[in-house]
């Protein structure tokens, strides 16, 4: 109990005294995760759209495949990418292992299935007539695509928040692909793992508080967005 109290008190002191190392770690987390999700959104939307409105052989199979990817543990994605990006792997020449790019790639593949599945569900729940009305009014595919996206914007926001929530707090893949290099690929979750292993609980708790706060903000936004979505589907 004593350890918990003193560590938590120290954690708050670290956070609010503007400890540069901690805030640098927070910054790296946000930068990498934001890039990853921004990169994942366009392909995820295209895939979700194809799955929802396309008709081609293997469509059902792909849908269940993406749903399966939802529950693939992060370390499995991490390990797979590790093998691919390692110098002896097929993409070894790119020298990506232990870079922010590798970490971002891991997070990209972690949030892609979430974005695809949640966007797909939103698209299925949306009236197909939205797409058809846009098309019959003379909108080209791209225009109709954006029209429908706007119609399901609340569902998409929810997907975005859920995807972000997963990757910002993910430790396994980031540790494996980024290598937890100080000032470079050390993000919030890998730093927590490190500080804990060093016995520096206060630093771990301080970063945990940042994550907790972030999770709270994301969840509140999610609640708000979903509430909005149900009023005006």
């Amino acid at each position: 109990m004593d350890v918990l109290l003193t560590s938590t008190a120290e954690a708050f002191r670290l956070l609010f005294s503007g400890n540069p190392e901690i805030w640098e770690i927070v910054g790296i987390s946000f930068r990498v995760s934001s890039m990853a999700i921004l990169a994942a959104v366009p392909p995820a939307l295209v895939i979700a759209f194809t799955l929802a409105y396309g008709s081609f052989p293997g469509r059902r199979f792909l849908i269940s495949l993406f749903n399966t990817f939802l529950s693939v543990p992060a370390v499995v994605i991490g390990l797979t990418l590790f093998i691919i990006l390692s110098r002896q792997g097929p993409m070894g020449d790119f020298k990506l292992l232990f870079t922010q790019t590798a970490m971002g790639l891991g997070q990209f593949f972690l949030c892609l299935p979430i974005l695809v599945c949640m966007a797909h569900v939103s698209l299925q729940a949306a009236d197909r007539a939205a797409w058809e009305t846009a098309r019959t009014l003379g909108a080209n595919r791209l225009r109709a695509f954006f029209t429908v996206l706007y119609e399901i914007r609340f569902g998409l926001m929810a997907a975005l928040l859920a995807g972000y929530g997963r990757i910002i707090s993910e430790v396994g893949a980031s540790m494996m692909l980024g290598g937890n290099i100080a000032h470079y690929t050390r993000n919030i979750p890998t730093a927590i793992a490190l500080e804990t292993s060093k016995g520096a609980f206060a630093e771990g708790i301080a970063l945990g508080i940042v994550l907790l706060f972030l999770a709270f903000v994301l969840n509140s936004l999610l609640q708000y967005v979903q509430g909005k979505g149900s009023i005006n589907p």
């Binding site: 009236d127 007539a129 058809e132 009305t133 098309r135 019959t136 706007y150």
Partner: peptide, 16 residues
């Protein structure tokens, strides 16, 4: 056809 023919659903779809 998409450009010159207009189809009205039984329940017209209203955009948000």
């Amino acid at each position: 056809l998409l450009k010159s023919v207009m189809y009205l659903h039984q329940q017209p779809y209203m955009f948000a």
